[in-house]
């Protein structure tokens, strides 16, 4: 029979080991590589939100975004022992999630999820323009973002807050009109803060192509946001 007690319980000691939260992230990745579930759970806490928001902004679908977060982290657990360097972990997560999102968007294009959208002549890609802000499938998430903008603001002019919410809603909607490739690059750069070099590694494209895609996305978004100035 294998003894599986955690060392902290099995070995009461006058000295204590460094708690997980006080370790550097590279050490936590290394421990997860050795199969430590607690270290891995810490990494989930640290990164699931960012990966989820990337997937949600890519797919505009909460359920599909959650599925991809789940698949990405399960793949991470299985792939961790083979990861060459601990620094590669976070870019690897985003690369896996981005690829899964792009695959899903390609599948949607081939086989639209909602047949009535096709009959109405509205494709998946243009579903998020600002005029469709009243779309009942979208409004719960938008309104929840609106609430948090209000909650975070403190004593600020309510009119200004409403305007900010409207602008965030417009940007989120417009983002869905940007083609998936440029959308992924723009999100990774502008929202998740990766460098051009890192994004080139994540999407497996030359840095010049990444720059071009981000510039294309900015043009679509900046032009689309103009009416809100």
């Amino acid at each position: 029979m294998a003894r599986t007690e955690s060392p902290a319980e099995a070995a009461p000691s006058p000295v204590t080991s460094v708690p997980l939260a006080d370790l550097d992230e590279s050490t936590i990745v290394a421990r997860a590589q050795d199969g430590d579930p607690k270290a891995f759970e810490w990494l989930i806490s640290a990164h699931q939100g960012g990966v989820y928001r990337l997937c949600f902004r890519m797919l505009d679908d909460r359920g599909h975004a959650e599925d991809i977060v789940q698949e990405t982290f399960i793949a991470a657990w299985r792939g961790l022992p083979h990861l060459a360097t601990v620094q590669a972990f976070v870019p690897w997560l985003y690369r896996t999630a981005t690829n899964k999102c792009l695959d899903q968007l390609r599948q949607r294009k081939r086989r639209p999820v909602d047949p009535t959208a096709e009959l109405d002549g509205t494709s998946m890609e243009v579903g998020g323009n600002p005029s469709s802000g009243e779309d009942p499938t979208r409004s719960p998430l938008l309104s929840s973002r609106g609430r948090s903008a209000l909650a975070d603001g403190g004593p600020v002019d309510p009119a200004e807050q409403i305007e900010t919410q409207e602008q965030l809603r417009a940007l989120a909607g417009l983002l869905q009109t940007v083609p998936p490739g440029p959308r992924a690059c723009w999100l990774l750069r502008e929202v998740h803060g990766f460098s051009y070099h890192e994004i080139a590694a994540i999407v497996q494209l030359p840095e010049s192509t990444v720059r071009g895609r981000i510039a294309r996305a900015k043009r679509v978004l900046a032009e689309g946001m103009s009416p809100w100035r």
Binding site: Q48, G49, G50, Y52, R53, F56, A65, E66, V69, P140, L141, S144, R145, R147, S148, A149, D152, L168, E190, V191, G193
Partner: peptide, 12 residues
């Protein structure tokens, strides 16, 4: 960028 991470609706 500032609002999304604080939004409970944008967490899995």
């Amino acid at each position: 960028r500032d609002a999304d991470p604080q939004d409970p609706g944008l967490q899995p």
